[in-house]
């Protein structure tokens, strides 16, 4: 890393000032790490949480529609700060790493160790591949508009194929009680949850009467459209929140 020419060009400080500057970096990184775990995880848990918590919510219609839509929020806002003001193309990846670390800690200690749920039943989804692509598209295009259109679309479209290698195997059918179920459904039936009766699930609503079984690609493309809008909205929300105004009174 020390041979990186950007580092030499981009370092106006030397000696103690450089050390002070670097120590400030570390402080901010620690601050940001916990900030984005706390806030982004809360945002995700309370908007798409049920789809992310439980295997038997990870359906082909709503899960690929809503998850990217609500998970592009903080990445867009943090990108607007880190890219516009610091040229750091890592806002989305930072948010997603924080979210996953926070989710894993909770799944292990709150679900498994406290209340005995098997961890495979509460595996989180990943949007890290999507986030990486979103970051590099922003960096390469240096354009909010192009990123909103192509990055957000990629963000949504990559979601399902990124997660199918993990969750596809839970959609293998089993015969149970004289009917076919997925293994994911069976988890919901077998591992008892007092507060999550089956009827609460928002899955497979609607009839798909026009396009047969092609639910997932349609949901993903719709999500891509919505993500484009959501990205733009949250980019500006991020800019608005990162105001530097001082007020006379509040």
């Amino acid at each position: 890393m020390t041979t990186n020419p950007a580092e030499l060009a981009a370092q106006p400080y030397s000696g103690e000032k450089a050390r002070l500057s670097r120590h400030f970096d570390y402080l901010i990184l620690v601050l940001a790490f916990f900030l984005y775990i706390g806030s982004f995880h809360l945002n995700v848990a309370l908007t798409v949480g049920d789809w992310d918590f439980w295997l038997d919510w990870k359906d082909r219609q709503w899960w690929p529609l809503i998850t990217p839509l609500m998970m592009i929020t903080f990445p867009a806002a943090v990108q607007s700060l880190l890219w516009e003001r610091f040229r750091l193309p890592m806002g989305a990846t930072l948010c997603m790493c924080c979210l996953l670390i926070g989710s894993w800690i909770t799944r292990v200690f709150a679900y498994h160790y406290w209340n005995y749920f098997p961890i495979n039943m509460v595996l989180p989804a990943t949007m890290l591949p999507s986030a990486l692509v979103l970051d590099v598209i922003l960096m390469l295009t240096n354009s909010m508009t192009f990123t909103a259109i192509f990055g957000s679309a990629a963000f949504a479209l990559l979601f399902y194929p990124s997660n199918w290698p993990m969750f596809g195997m839970f959609h293998v059918p089993v015969e149970y009680g004289g009917a076919q179920l997925t293994i994911a459904d069976l988890f919901g039936f077998q591992y008892i949850r007092a507060g999550m009766p089956e009827y609460l699930r928002i899955i497979e609503r609607g009839t798909l009467r026009t396009y047969g079984q092609y639910a997932t690609p349609l949901a993903s493309f719709f999500s891509a459209l919505l993500c484009t809008l959501m990205y733009t909205l949250w980019w500006h929300l991020g800019k608005w929140f990162a105001t530097v105004r001082y007020l006379k009174k509040i």
Binding site: M1, N4, A6, E7, A10, Q11, P12, Y13, A18, S21, R22, F24, D25, I28, L29, F86, R87, L88, P89, M90, T93, L94, M96, C97, L128, A131, L132, D135
Partner: peptide, 18 residues
């Protein structure tokens, strides 16, 4: 992969210089 990408960026001077 994600952490490697973050490390690639945060290993260089960040906020003041940039």
């Amino acid at each position: 992969v994600g952490l490697a990408w973050l490390l690639w960026w945060i290993s260089r001077p960040l906020f003041f210089p940039r």
